[in-house]
Simulated scan of single mutants.
Amino acid sequence: MNVMNSSVDWMLDDALTVPGTRHAILLSSDGMLRARSQGISRDEADRQAAALAGLQSISRSTTEFCGASETPWRQTLVEFAGGFVFLIAAGPGAYLAVSTSENVDMEAVTFRMHKLVDRLGKELSTPVREGYVG
């Protein structure tokens, strides 16, 4: 199976039209890189995909802290001194992540990410690999 989806790579650049955005990657729930925007190396995107898979897993495991255990996870936002990382669901077993500078319109980034997920629909779906428990 081809891990990268070059037909989606160029579409991820659309998420970067908001001023202050840096990189976008599409990853599977088990940390496999599925696609990446221009400007981020394959090695760096692979490393970030693995880390962000762990982040979404941890985020989803804290739903009871927010309310009932059936509260669905929607987004994780991590703030750093120099910017943000946005992580959202992009279909069954797939997640979209965008990194930004600190001076970004956060609402515009989230809106653009959700529009991209809507536009790509099933193309962003990543089936869970056999034997993976996530």
Rank of each mutant, 00 (worst) to 15 (best):
A90N: 10
G39V: 12
F84W: 08
R47P: 14
D105L: 08
D30A: 02
S57N: 08
L55S: 04
S61G: 02
Q38A: 04
I88L: 05
L52W: 06
F65T: 03
M32P: 15
D9M: 07
S37T: 02
G121H: 05
S28P: 15
K122R: 05
T17K: 14
Q75P: 14
S28I: 08
P72Q: 02
S29R: 01
V18Y: 07
G83D: 06
G39H: 10
G91Q: 09
L120T: 06
L52Y: 07
G91C: 15
F86R: 01
G20R: 03
F65H: 04
V3F: 14
F84Y: 10
N5V: 12
C66V: 11
M1N: 06
M32Y: 13
V78Y: 14
G54P: 15
M32W: 15
A50W: 13
S99W: 11
T63I: 06
F111V: 03
H114K: 12
A49C: 03
Q75S: 11
R60F: 02
D13I: 06
Y95A: 00
G93V: 05
R112A: 02
A97P: 13
A50L: 07
K115W: 09
G83F: 15
G31C: 00
T62G: 14
L55A: 11
R22I: 04
F86I: 01
H23G: 02
V109F: 15
V18W: 12
V104M: 07
D118W: 12
V85Y: 05
S101Y: 07
T100M: 13
F80M: 04
G91Y: 09
E123S: 07
N2V: 13
D30N: 13
N2I: 13
G20S: 04
N103H: 13
E123F: 07
S7I: 15
T110D: 08
M11R: 05
L77A: 10
L16G: 15
Q75V: 12
A35D: 12
T63Y: 11
F86C: 04
S61L: 05
L33F: 08
H114L: 05
G91W: 09
T71S: 06
Q38F: 12
Q75G: 07
R119K: 13
V3C: 10
M32D: 11
T100P: 15
D14G: 01
G93R: 09
H23Y: 14
W73V: 00
Q48K: 03
H114T: 05
S37G: 04
E102Q: 01
S41I: 11
V104Q: 02
